[in-house]
């Protein structure tokens, strides 16, 4: 089914998925988008099959929102192609096959919640009833409230209810819980999850590792506008199941680093001044080699979590407001 492929570049590992025979919900091929001199999306490939719940995980500026805009037909790629259920994204949107919950904006403050939904509903040819989506999003009690008077979390559930109206086969959420408190995020995901059990395809962008881990059955890690890892949460974690060996090695250079890289089970070697950092599946072998064959000393072995996989694969330290001890997976 799935196979683990380690590519030639020392810091990038890719879990390539086999091609399942189920219906393809979305297919992105060689997507490139530039803004002036900045390349936001740089040759991104992604295939989402029907029924998958995919987390699009990456640091800020990884190209998540730009990719989602192209997936929804809100912007056009400079090169590459987007297919949603075998048609262009605009057609899929018009048919109500794909809908989205955007990060912010997109609501009129002077309408009530129910009016907003009635307005959205009247633009589609066929929809679920307003009563039903209010119920599903858990906002029946605030139906008559002005949108401008709703909290951020409530507004996000209004956006979610709007996205449910056309009963889409694919729902896309762009960082849906940004700015929500922990409770608001949990409520939102509970509502989301209750709905997703119905077999809808879900793609959500997030920079919260915990969300990706808890709610997705597939994580696509993006960095620098490309997919750097793709697999189930378990597979992504397995990539980081190895350990980090740190040692002080005065005078270590590229030659020494390459030697270490050649050791069995070594995934990545990094030099920071006199400190050498080795990521490896077999930390004992690395430690033994360092202590017996090199002048390295002050050796330390630490286990790695998803956080480290994130850093290793994206090259960005991961930050969240409610995660403490971001870098120290030391145990």
């Amino acid at each position: 089914m799935t196979s683990l492929q380690v590519d030639a570049s020392p810091s990038r590992t890719t879990v390539a998925r086999g091609t399942p025979s189920r219906t393809v919900a979305a297919e992105l091929r060689g997507l490139v988008k530039r803004f002036g001199g900045v390349t936001a999306v740089d040759g991104l490939d992604l295939t989402v099959t029907q029924g998958e719940v995919v987390a699009f995980l990456g640091p800020n500026g990884a190209g998540k929102t730009t990719t989602i805009d192209m997936l929804l037909g809100l912007s056009t790629p400079d090169s590459g192609s987007v297919q949603v259920f075998g048609t262009g994204p605009r057609q899929a949107v018009a048919e109500g096959r794909v809908s989205a919950v955007m990060q912010s904006g997109g609501l009129l403050r002077d309408l009530t919640v129910a009016e907003t939904l009635r307005l959205t509903a009247c633009l589609f040819s066929h929809t679920r009833s307003v009563t039903e989506v209010l119920e599903r999003a858990g906002i029946t009690s605030i139906a008559d409230r002005r949108v401008g008077k709703c909290s951020g979390g409530q507004q996000q559930r209004v956006r979610f209810a709007m996205a449910l109206l056309p009963d889409p086969d694919l729902i896309v959420l762009d960082e849906p819980t940004t700015g929500m408190d922990v409770e608001g995020r949990r409520d939102f995901w509970n509502a989301m999850h209750a709905d997703a059990t119905r077999g809808r395809t879900v793609v959500f962008a997030t920079h919260y590792l915990e969300e990706a881990d808890a709610y997705a059955d597939r994580i696509v890690l993006v960095s620098g506008g490309r997919v750097v890892a793709d697999g189930t949460p378990a597979e992504i974690k397995a990539m980081s199941a190895g350990r980090l060996v740190t040692a002080t090695w005065p005078g270590a250079g590229t030659g020494e680093a390459l030697q270490l890289r050649a050791l069995p089970g070594v995934e990545d070697v990094e030099l920071r001044g006199e400190t050498v950092l080795v990521r490896a599946a077999d930390s004992d072998a690395v430690a033994r080699h360092l202590l017996t064959h090199t002048p390295a000393h002050d050796l330390q072995v630490t286990s790695r979590g998803l956080e480290d996989a994130f850093i290793a694969l994206t090259g960005h330290p991961h930050t969240t407001p409610d995660t403490v001890d971001l870098t120290g997976a030391t145990r």
Partner: peptide, 26 residues
């Protein structure tokens, strides 16, 4: 309790580019 399996809505693109009197009224 909402039914867990409901018939999918019909698909189609609205006539008149989505123009509707409900929209005008709101």
């Amino acid at each position: 309790a909402l039914p867990t399996t409901t018939a999918p809505v019909q698909r189609g693109v609205p006539a008149l580019g989505g123009f509707s009197l409900t929209f005008l009224q709101l």
